[in-house]
Design a protein around this nucleic acid. Structure first.
Lengths: 241, 241
DNA sequence: ATTATTAGTGTTTCATATGCAATATAAGAT
DNA sequence: ATCTTATATTGCATATGAAACACTAATAAT
């Protein structure tokens, strides 16, 4: 039993293991981008409660696992993907958020740039699917609230930080980048102005590679130069789109 | 006992109340602003562990309390202040962050505009003091990490949202506002341009009141017009300084 | 060769931001 | 009365950035 006992953090006199005890879980909002649409990875539950409902991927945290480890495991178990961009964005702990007891959940969002893999259905999920965020089904627990907050956080973050690149493959064209941002922010950019602006930031590394097998002038490929960004950031530069 | 039992969230087969059990606490980074300096409210612990160390204010969450309630209580118990701006910013849950067991803490920051009250020393704290964030003592637990993240979050937030007003009294002068933002962001503004810019945003309500008993022209007082801000925000306006 | 198509580059206009200077104003202090 | 101090407003020259739009480039298909 790893629970702290006889634990007097403040002026409470009740031992923690009899009373101050919570379940802790991780829920992940996994975003993907494909053909101009922002999608989220949902699973259909195959167990009670909320059997049959769609839900975010998530799991209980084991007492000897850090939160980030637990979050990475959640993602890896379902998708097989490692080293994915993840970010904690909020903790949901309403007393009644879980029908079976007090379970507090720490929510992460992650951005994956390749949707070319088979989400692994687990023993508690019928299926896993990428679903457009503008066409969501009814969700289990308070997952709709969590998802909305995740979308809000993402939209907010991509405006001020170069997070959006995580949704693209490592090598991308400027037009792909523009279309991504148009999908994220919900409005159009002028092509030449967008290109000028993003290139003048000096955070993209132009490659000597081009899109192949297209029936028009091939587009140049770029990479996001994270090191460069970190340096510029320290010098006071701030990303804005 | 409110702990969920025989609780099969995923494919785990271990009952939650024997194993998946955590302590949950709230920690509050309370910011104040006084004479050009950003300060934070710290207490000196009078109990083990970390007896004598300075720490953030915080407490265990009771199983029937929502997180926001618990956070409000933490603040109210120490300062007597109610209806204070509070915002959850991160949850810290490293396995070894607490020497007595696994305790996950949800961190909030709050902004208080009046430091003219006596922080109430509790049974577990020797004293409570406002301390300049550039002159911090050694802190208990991982509170230094929490505090740093709180400062970072605050500095990030005040640039894009009119949160800073919460640190000023309800009625303030434009110069006070400017000095606050200079302290928060770490650089100077041109006076006339700052005033022009902030007034053109239309989120300040000018009052017919003035600073009294000053040996120079008295400054006009303003209020932050939150309703107006909310409307403008819906119309697409976004605060930037 | 011609065409369709998308990549990619200038260029012009207009609005706004910024830095700096100048001036008028209102109070207490001398 | 005059000085000092800090508020408050205006003006302007310049730098920066946004918006619109026209143009050239390179490839595959015909």
């Amino acid at each position: 039993m790893k629970t702290p006992s006889s634990y007097f953090l403040s002026d409470h006199t009740i031992p923690l293991n009899d009373y101050f005890v919570f379940g802790l879980s991780i829920d992940c909002v996994v975003f993907g981008y494909h053909e101009g649409e922002i999608k989220v990875l949902l699973v259909q539950r195959d167990v009670e409660p909320f059997n049959g409902h769609w839900a975010l991927i998530g799991d209980l945290v084991e007492p000897d696992k850090n939160l980030e480890e637990a979050a990475n495991n959640v993602l890896e178990n379902l998708t097989g993907l490692k080293n994915i961009y993840m970010k904690q964005f909020f903790t949901f702990g309403s007393v009644d958020r879980h029908p079976l007891g007090r379970v507090v959940t720490v929510a992460y969002f992650s951005l994956v740039n390749s949707m070319n893999y088979q989400p692994i259905a687990s023993s508690w999920a019928k299926s896993a699917e990428w679903i457009n965020i503008n066409n969501l089904p009814e969700l289990a627990f308070d997952h709709y609230t969590i998802l909305c907050k995740g979308i809000e956080t993402l939209k907010n973050e991509v405006r001020h930080k170069p997070t959006g690149f995580e949704l693209l493959p490592k090598k991308f064209t400027l037009l792909e980048l523009q279309l991504l941002y148009e999908a994220l922010l919900g409005y159009k950019f002028d092509k030449s102005n967008f290109r000028k602006k993003i290139q003048e930031m000096n955070i993209l590394r132009p490659l000597n590679e081009f899109k192949l097998n297209v029936s028009h002038r091939p587009a140049k490929l770029f990479e996001f130069d994270e090191k460069r960004y970190r340096t510029l950031e320290k010098e006071g530069f701030s990303f804005e789109l």
